[in-house]
Simulated scan of single mutants.
Amino acid sequence: MTAASAARRTARGNRWGLVLAGVVLVALAVPALAAGRGLLGQGAAAEELDAVGAAGAWLPYAVLAAAVVVGLLALRWIFVQGRTGAVRRLVVDPESRSGTTEMPAGAARSAFEEAVGEYAGVRRARLRMTASARAPHVRLDLTVDEDADVPALWRRVRAEALEDLRSALDLDGLPAVVRMSMVPPPKNPRRTLA
């Protein structure tokens, strides 16, 4: 499953979840509102409470339990939205006859960020690997100086860093998205204006 199809599936699940939650809330709210406003006849709400009687002593606890369950499901839903799809382990040389070799994605990420971080004009390099352990995709965020030679930097990242990473992971291809943002050069705190 690609990252794009996983994102579409998550978005579709979110839409259906929101629709289902809305339908349930409306289905519960409309009769309660109608009974409270007396649209179901005068005293309909009081008759319901009398019908429940002593057996309804557990009703507040059931409502509380249902609210806690709904709250926990909502929290899980929120936490699922924060998933990045980042790959934690990478499979190196998947066609080896001696078995599968894995490495932590963090090791490859750190080496890559350190190498690119030393390029002239680069302030910060952040790499994220997504998709799968056997065929990762790369998302690289570079913060570069305002006066950096962006085309030359892009060529170097593509020809050296991404090619080295692709080669180290023994991949035929390595899909990559590179985003560059610029920052002004650092101010000299010792320099004073006359």
Rank of each mutant, 00 (worst) to 15 (best):
A3H: 06
A7T: 01
R8A: 09
G13H: 04
N14P: 01
N14H: 10
R15A: 05
W16F: 08
W16H: 05
V19R: 00
V19G: 04
L20M: 02
L25S: 02
A27V: 00
A27T: 01
A29M: 05
V30D: 01
L33M: 15
L33A: 14
R37M: 15
G38H: 08
L40D: 05
L40W: 13
L40H: 09
Q42K: 11
G43F: 07
D50L: 08
D50Q: 14
V52E: 13
A54W: 07
A55K: 04
G56N: 04
W58D: 11
L59M: 11
V63C: 14
A65L: 15
A66M: 09
A66I: 03
A66C: 10
V68E: 10
V69F: 13
V70S: 13
V70P: 05
V70G: 12
G71V: 06
G71F: 15
L72Q: 11
L73Y: 06
L73M: 11
Q81M: 11
Q81T: 06
Q81N: 09
Q81F: 08
T84E: 05
R89T: 07
L90N: 05
V92P: 00
V92E: 00
D93S: 15
E95N: 08
S96G: 07
R97H: 12
S98R: 13
T100F: 09
T101Q: 12
T101L: 14
E102T: 14
E102C: 06
P104M: 07
A105Y: 06
A105F: 03
R109E: 03
A111P: 00
V116F: 06
V116Y: 02
V116A: 10
V116N: 05
E118N: 01
A120F: 05
G121L: 04
V122M: 02
R123N: 14
R123L: 14
M129E: 08
M129T: 04
M129D: 03
T130I: 05
A131H: 12
A133E: 08
R134S: 12
A135C: 07
A135R: 14
H137Y: 15
V138W: 12
R139Y: 14
D147A: 13
D149M: 02
A152I: 00
A152R: 05
W154R: 07
R158D: 15
E160R: 09
A161F: 05
L165D: 01
L165N: 03
L169P: 01
L171Y: 12
D172L: 07
L174I: 09
L174Q: 06
P175L: 11
A176N: 12
A176K: 06
V177L: 11
S181H: 15
M182F: 13
P184S: 11
K187W: 04
K187H: 08
N188V: 00
P189Y: 06
T192S: 00
L193N: 05
